[in-house]
């Protein structure tokens, strides 16, 4: 008897495992979009020395992929740990700190002198300061308060406000010509990314992604909320600490590599949540990573080819990202 009923009962089980299909389809679509974006970017309107142009573009594509993947996955992690989908890791003050660093350096050394500093030294310096800041915040607010993410975020908001205020003050002190040069530097640029830095950044991001992937099921449980996850045997405090450290790496590395990009992660992650209709990290992490890279490359392509470099992708992203963010806020309010 049980032999007969077993398969019938098995149906809903399979119904349960059918559901990832939607997310697989979505991921595949985004993957194809990614390939199309890369192909367009690499081949459209190639002129001059083919090998030189291709190499230049390949490096740009690699940098953009790295940045898009890093920021998007960081945002997904941040959403899971904070239990809030309209936040961005920018809240923690990484962008503000980066801007402050650039401004202070421009004030101390002059923009042009600063730009002459060995690019790798600059990268390491910026990365070190941002990581130290993240570790400091994590240490103070996660170890001592037993994983109170809200407190951590409030501290991040206050700190980034302070960074911005100091940055503004310093900006007023520097030479107006240098200020213009500085302002341009503050928006992310992919034009001149050092090859070795790219390699090192790729390794950092790849290691972080491996850790994220290994935690994917625990992150699913953490997404239920602190108490539910604890009750299911997840060490929520540990997952939170590790996640915040990963967020730091995944935000600090791209920022040190190319500069600050706001809203990209928010755009990619929320788009993926809407499309996949799941919170499972085995679906959202790869999809968001691909989506982030795709959006960035597509935006850069459109700007380079159709706006003749008059504006930067990060500015356009900030514009559209801002609109999407407001839409998201309004939607949340209605719920």
């Amino acid at each position: 008897m049980s032999v007969d009923t077993e398969p019938i009962r098995g149906e809903p089980i399979r119904g349960g495992t059918f559901r990832p299909r939607r997310s697989i389809v979505v991921t595949a679509v985004i993957g194809v979009a990614f390939l199309i974006a890369v192909a367009c970017f690499m081949t459209y309107d190639l002129r001059g020395s083919l090998s030189y142009a291709l190499e230049l573009r390949a490096r740009k594509v690699a940098a953009m992929t790295l940045v898009g993947v890093g920021l998007s996955v960081a945002t997904v992690l941040f959403h899971t740990v904070s239990g809030n989908r309209i936040l961005t890791p920018a809240l923690m003050g990484f962008d503000a700190l980066y801007i402050l660093l650039q401004t202070v350096a421009a004030y101390l050394f002059g923009t042009f002198a600063f730009l002459r500093i060995e690019v790798r030294v600059r990268f390491l310096g910026e990365l070190a300061v941002m990581m130290l800041f993240a570790l400091f915040l994590n240490h103070i607010f996660l170890r001592r308060t037993r994983g109170d993410v809200v407190l951590l975020m409030l501290a991040g908001v206050v700190m980034s406000g302070m960074f911005r205020a100091i940055g503004n003050l310093v900006a007023r002190l520097i030479d107006p010509n240098e200020f213009v040069a500085l302002q341009d530097r503050l928006f992310a640029s992919f034009s001149s990314v050092d090859e070795q830095l790219l390699g090192a950044s790729a390794v950092c991001v790849a290691v972080a992604l491996v850790v994220v992937w290994r935690m994917r099921y625990q992150l699913d449980a953490v997404a239920l909320g602190h108490d539910h996850a604890s009750s299911l045997g997840v060490d929520v405090d540990r997952v939170t600490r590790v996640s915040m450290a990963l967020v730091a790496v995944l935000v600090a590395v791209p920022t040190a590599l190319v500069g600050a990009i706001t809203f990209l992660g928010l755009l990619a992650s929320n788009g993926v949540y809407l499309a996949t209709r799941t919170f499972r990290h085995r679906s959202t992490v790869p999809a968001a990573a691909l989506a982030g890279a795709t959006i960035l490359i597509a935006a850069q392509f459109v700007i380079e080819e159709f706006f003749a470099f008059n504006t930067r992708a990060s500015m356009v992203l900030a514009f559209f990202g801002g609109i999407a963010f407001i839409a998201l806020l309004l939607k949340e309010q209605r719920r």
């Binding site: 099921y217 449980a221 239920l224 909320g225 299911l232």
Partner: peptide, 20 residues
């Protein structure tokens, strides 16, 4: 914090044993 189906919720009950 997330929207789950009844089955998904009940499946989480097995998390301590299967880790997802």
């Amino acid at each position: 914090a997330v929207r789950l189906t009844v089955r998904e919720l009940v499946e989480f009950g097995r998390f301590p044993y299967s880790q997802g």
